[in-house]
Write a protein that binds this DNA or RNA. Structure first.
Length: 261
DNA sequence: AACAACTCCAACCGCTATTCG
DNA sequence: CCGAATAGCGGTTGGAGTTGT
């Protein structure tokens, strides 16, 4: 094993090691990209050129963004896929830093496999354990009023936006209410409400509206995002828990801030 | 605790398009 | 124009990690 019949070392396959990554990055930073087969040889990597190219383009290349597909990106993927079909590279070209491979995986695992759920069948991925109840009750006190009817009216004025990303959450696009996010971020709920926008990827209706109802419950309000906002300057603000009072579940989230560019 | 089922994603494969001598 | 080499694309798979029973 590990060698061809001619005595040459067999070309390595499988996951890349840190050492290989460093060699590839080091070589390209010094010599630039080129013929990938030659590059692999010249760099001393026992990989074929295709493998090197894929590794570089999808993971090592500067500017590649991984994971944490934002609601804006999710919406863009859906729209672009509807228009272009499985043209992953063309779709990726519209999403700075995203690769065709990632978008393809995202589509197949998050969108295609899980079509938007009807709003009436609220999924409840995380039932609140007893220990969460006290926290939830505290959150409820601040969340309840501001996140209902008043929230929708406050959207649309800010170019900043905030994305509350579920952590280890089985369903994409679940976001906490703006007041909870504001509490987590340590900012005033009133001022945050004008800046906080979000969008549920699993929402079936109301895309063109200023707010929507999610599949999780009535408490979450959403508005259209400025679609280009996700590109750069993402800032992690805080992390914490969110609580859906209506449907009685909770989850963890991290809050990202996309400053007005 | 152990096992099964499921999810996600990195990487491979095969094919087509493009470039170059 | 032709054929080989290279680059790019989209489909598929293997396996690690997670969740459910």
């Amino acid at each position: 094993m590990g060698r061809t019949c001619g005595g040459e070392p067999a070309v390595r396959k499988g996951p890349w090691t840190l050492e290989e990554d460093l060699v590839l990055v080091g070589y390209i930073s010094q010599h630039g990209e080129g013929s990938w087969d030659n590059l692999a040889r010249a760099a001393g990597l026992n990989r074929n050129g295709k493998s090197c190219r894929l590794r570089w383009l999808n993971y090592l290349r500067p500017g590649v963004r991984r994971g944490g597909i934002t609601p804006a990106e999710d919406a863009a993927i859906r729209e672009l896929h509807a228009a272009l079909g499985n043209k992953w590279s063309k779709i990726a070209a519209h999403l700075p830093g995203r690769t065709d491979n990632e978008i393809k995986n995202y589509w197949r695992t998050r969108i295609q496999r899980r079509p938007a759920a009807p709003a009436s069948s609220a999924q409840q991925p995380y039932r609140a354990p007893a220990t969460a109840t006290a926290t939830a009750a505290a959150m409820t006190a601040s969340e309840g009023a501001s996140s209902s009817s008043s929230a929708a009216a406050s959207h649309g004025s800010s170019a900043d936006w905030w994305y509350v990303e579920p952590v280890n959450h089985p369903e994409q696009g679940a976001h906490c209410s703006q007041s909870v996010a504001a509490a987590a971020a340590g900012v005033d709920s009133g001022s945050a409400s004008s800046a906080l926008t979000s969008r549920d990827s699993s929402t079936t209706a109301g895309v063109d509206g200023q707010h929507m109802q999610t599949s999780y419950g009535d408490r979450y309000y959403y508005s259209e995002l400025s679609s280009a906002a996700a590109a750069d300057g993402v800032e992690m603000v805080d992390a914490g828990s969110f609580w859906n009072v209506d449907d009685d579940f909770w989850g963890r989230f991290q809050m990202l801030h996309y400053p007005d560019s």
